[in-house]
Computed example of a mutant assay.
Amino acid sequence: MSSPRPLFPELAGLRWPLIQAPMAGAQDARLALAVGRAGALGSLPAAMLAPEALARELQRMQAADLPCNVNFFAHRPPDAVQAAATDARWRQALAPLRAELGLDEDAGPVPASRQPFGPAMAEVLERCPPAVVSFHFGLPDAALLARVRALGCRILASATTLREAQWLQAQGVDAVIAQGLEAGGHRGHFLDTDPDQQSGTLALVAACARALDIAVIAAGGIATAEDVRAARAAGARAVQVGTAFLCCDEATTGPLHRARLLDPQAPTALTNLFSGGLARGLHNRLMAEFGPVSPLAPPFPLASAALAPLRAAAERLGRDDFTPLWSGTNRAGCRAVPAAEIVEVLAAGFLPAD
């Protein structure tokens, strides 16, 4: 098969304009390596890694001489006083569930598990520069972004509306990831936080492709070659795919999560319960107890700390009651196969249809 025009022609080994979405908690460098060896761009999620852990993961990619995308969050942590008040309220709301599982009273607040890009991570990139760096929830401050740009890294960032995409272009990013409402995991919004202001992937891609001078990458609801073709027809230069890789051999997705992903009838919803930030996942008991979106949940990224003991206890009983089951709306591509097979299926969408 011949290859289409790559997103970044200078990246050796990148055969397809296909990016494996960074998925914190469901992957490490093993998945990124498998995707890279298949000719697509593997990604490393860094928001939940310590700097030393990220350095090790990057070294694994560089030892294989494969380009990779390293993804960071660019959120602004909530005010400490507000955080303490909302955390206490959230823990009180969860108290009956802790009692049901026989858990002791919580010890109190713990550090947030998701950290924004900062100087320590910039130092890691300076020691091991990746080919591509991407950001979720906007961009870091200008000085930090300048440090990344000085390394020669290509810079991508997520947008959920045309206004966000235009803002990102004005800041000098190399390409915009147009994240439609179908996408699993956290919404990357930062200017337009109301999902009613956001749209599906194809509509967002088309709007961005008409208005922007930089490349548009489609993300959300892409699971088959036909989906890739539809994204390209809407104006996408490349696609980013996450959910289809969650059940592949190299992913670290847990068994409870895998089982639910393989149920094509399982519904998804946007929820703020698991982290405080709006994210798409499969329905479970926590959503039934509080509704998918609750004002009781602390602001992002604080909600997950109080849920951690509940999640662990339920999982020991074989239940996914309090587990974040991130998933996009389209799970047609989820299969328990090597990641290279997922890449091959999607790559057919870059070739002329038979």
Rank of each mutant, 00 (worst) to 15 (best):
residue 9 P to S: 11
residue 66 L to N: 07
residue 59 Q to S: 13
residue 9 P to M: 00
residue 71 N to C: 06
residue 51 P to L: 05
residue 41 L to K: 05
residue 100 E to S: 10
residue 93 A to T: 05
residue 47 A to Y: 07
residue 66 L to S: 11
residue 30 R to T: 14
residue 94 L to S: 03
residue 79 D to V: 03
residue 49 L to S: 04
residue 69 N to A: 12
residue 78 P to V: 12
residue 66 L to A: 09
residue 95 A to S: 10
residue 37 R to M: 07
residue 33 L to E: 07
residue 87 D to S: 15
residue 42 G to F: 06
residue 67 P to V: 02
residue 38 A to I: 12
residue 74 A to G: 06
residue 80 A to V: 15
residue 27 Q to H: 10
residue 50 A to H: 15
residue 101 L to N: 08
residue 86 T to F: 04
residue 56 R to Q: 13
residue 17 P to D: 11
residue 75 H to R: 00
residue 52 E to Q: 15
residue 97 L to P: 14
residue 47 A to Q: 09
residue 23 M to T: 09
residue 15 R to F: 03
residue 13 G to E: 00
residue 9 P to F: 04
residue 91 R to T: 05
residue 21 A to N: 01
residue 44 L to R: 01
residue 30 R to V: 12
residue 13 G to V: 07
residue 71 N to E: 03
residue 93 A to I: 01
residue 35 V to G: 12
residue 84 A to K: 04
residue 15 R to T: 10
residue 22 P to Q: 12
residue 80 A to H: 09
residue 104 D to V: 09
residue 15 R to A: 14
residue 40 A to H: 05
residue 31 L to A: 04
residue 66 L to D: 11
residue 15 R to C: 06
residue 70 V to G: 03
residue 42 G to K: 02
residue 48 M to D: 07
residue 22 P to W: 06
residue 78 P to H: 08
residue 46 A to N: 02
residue 20 Q to H: 08
residue 80 A to D: 12
residue 34 A to K: 04
residue 81 V to D: 12
residue 72 F to P: 05
residue 54 L to R: 05
residue 10 E to S: 15
residue 85 A to E: 14
residue 64 A to G: 09
residue 61 M to S: 02
residue 72 F to R: 00
residue 51 P to G: 03
residue 81 V to E: 15
residue 81 V to C: 08
residue 34 A to S: 08
residue 73 F to Q: 01
residue 94 L to F: 09
residue 66 L to T: 06
residue 90 W to K: 06
residue 20 Q to P: 14
residue 62 Q to C: 04
residue 85 A to T: 10
residue 57 E to H: 04
residue 84 A to W: 03
residue 40 A to G: 06
residue 10 E to G: 14
residue 23 M to S: 02
residue 33 L to K: 03
residue 64 A to Y: 00
residue 86 T to V: 12
residue 96 P to Q: 07
residue 99 A to T: 12
residue 104 D to E: 15
residue 20 Q to M: 14
residue 85 A to Q: 15
residue 9 P to K: 04
residue 48 M to V: 11
residue 57 E to A: 09
residue 101 L to I: 00
residue 10 E to Y: 09
residue 9 P to A: 08
residue 101 L to G: 07
residue 88 A to C: 08
residue 84 A to Y: 00
residue 88 A to E: 05
residue 51 P to Q: 09
residue 101 L to V: 01
residue 11 L to Q: 11
